[in-house]
Amino acid sequence: MKIFVFEYASAGVLGATPLLTEGYAMLKSICSSLSAAGHEVHTFLFSEINELGIRPPADKIETYSSMHDAEKILSHVDACIPIAPDNLLYDLTKMVEAKTSLIGCPSKSILSCSNKDETYKIVSEVSKYFDVPEYETLPLENDPVVEYCSEIGFPVVIKPVDGSGCEGVSLINSKEEITDAIKKVSYVSMAKKLIVQKFCEGEHMSCSIICSKSRVLPLSMNSQRIKISGNISYLGGISPYPCVHKEEIFEESKNIAQNLELSGFAGIDLLVSGDKISFMEVNPRITTSFIALSNVMRTGELLVSCVEDSLPASVNLNGFGSVVIFPLKRGYDLDYKKILQIPEVISPPFSEEGTTLISVKSPSLYGIVDEINVVQKKLRDLGLLC
């Protein structure tokens, strides 16, 4: 099968964005998994990445200049995997649906998931186990946000209604911080509203699922390493990860996926505290956890099974995988040749104030920590880390 992987950031559609490192890592992982499954892979690659001699394992790599280039490729392939920030994914998916088979969530599901308010309402109606933390949808105005925060009490989380991941999300401890948080939302959101939600303590986890027309297959529970300060940042995770509530979460995730009519790979973000499982959001696309899971299962075969509606009844996970995003110290000497000699580096930094993403695997959960420490030392020896 000829498959076009259109990863928005690494294609260069957004220019030199901070999303490049994570985007290229996902592109590389998807291309590797599809190639290993015997498929012909086509993709775009940002010219600035290509000039560094960094290329994903694809059969045909082209340079993006306009959406017309994408439409030409779509007319000559059997299927496409589109990946983009949630506020851009809908239009991209609509274009794919008009041209070829889609490996991913349909546009109408993306529209529902990209609106957190709508998603929260659906989950509240259909969920047996998940709690939706107290929240309010408000305009991008200071007074109503201050009033609601005072009503529910600090700390609170302020985030875009249509946000993707941790982008534009702030943890607020006082009303003096609200103005800056609203500005942060306005920079990344196409909507004129935001979500204010009571901050909840707990363990950050996600559930990865893959869906076809007739089946929803839960793949794994994943840990999430989240840095919480004024800004909230995702720094990686481990897949699979033990969770005493796994069976209940798998059952509930299948229920939510069916109600939202999800397809392809998707992730459901959760906060687990004792017996309380709080729902955070649905990511209707391939997420960074896919990279870790590709170390322990045949993800390429599963992606194609979505189109063919031939998902297996279960999957075997061979060990543990992890993704870690390392912020780099300022002023380091950027030497791509040395960085890429470290095999665990999936995506190098593409700017002097960027991050690098590594992926490791181990037969045991404890072994994962050892593997991460080994790579961390290699990066520190190169002068990249503090």
Rank of each mutant, 00 (worst) to 15 (best):
S289T: 15
K227M: 10
V307P: 00
N222S: 13
Y241E: 05
T287C: 11
H245I: 09
P218W: 06
Q258G: 04
S220T: 13
M280P: 00
D275A: 08
N231V: 00
C243N: 15
I209P: 02
L260K: 01
L302I: 05
E308N: 12
V296P: 01
M221F: 03
P284G: 04
E252A: 04
F290C: 06
S233Y: 13
S229N: 14
N259H: 15
L271H: 01
E248M: 12
E281T: 03
T288R: 11
L262S: 06
M280K: 07
E251A: 15
Q224I: 07
T299C: 13
M205W: 01
E308C: 01
N283P: 01
N295P: 01
C207D: 04
M297L: 14
I232A: 07
F250N: 05
I256D: 02
M297P: 00
M221N: 12
I228W: 00
H245F: 11
L217P: 05
I226K: 09
G236H: 03
L235W: 00
K246Q: 15
E247K: 07
E251V: 06
S214T: 15
T299G: 04
L303Q: 10
P240G: 06
G274I: 08
I256V: 15
I268R: 04
M205V: 14
S233Q: 13
K276V: 13
K213E: 14
P284L: 00
I268M: 13
E247V: 11
S233D: 08
S253P: 09
L219P: 09
S212L: 06
I232S: 07
E247P: 00
Y241A: 11
C211Q: 05
G267V: 11
D275Y: 07
S263E: 13
I277V: 15
D275Q: 11
S263P: 00
P218A: 10
L293Q: 11
S289A: 14
C306Q: 07
V272P: 06
I286M: 07
G274C: 09
E308A: 04
E252G: 04
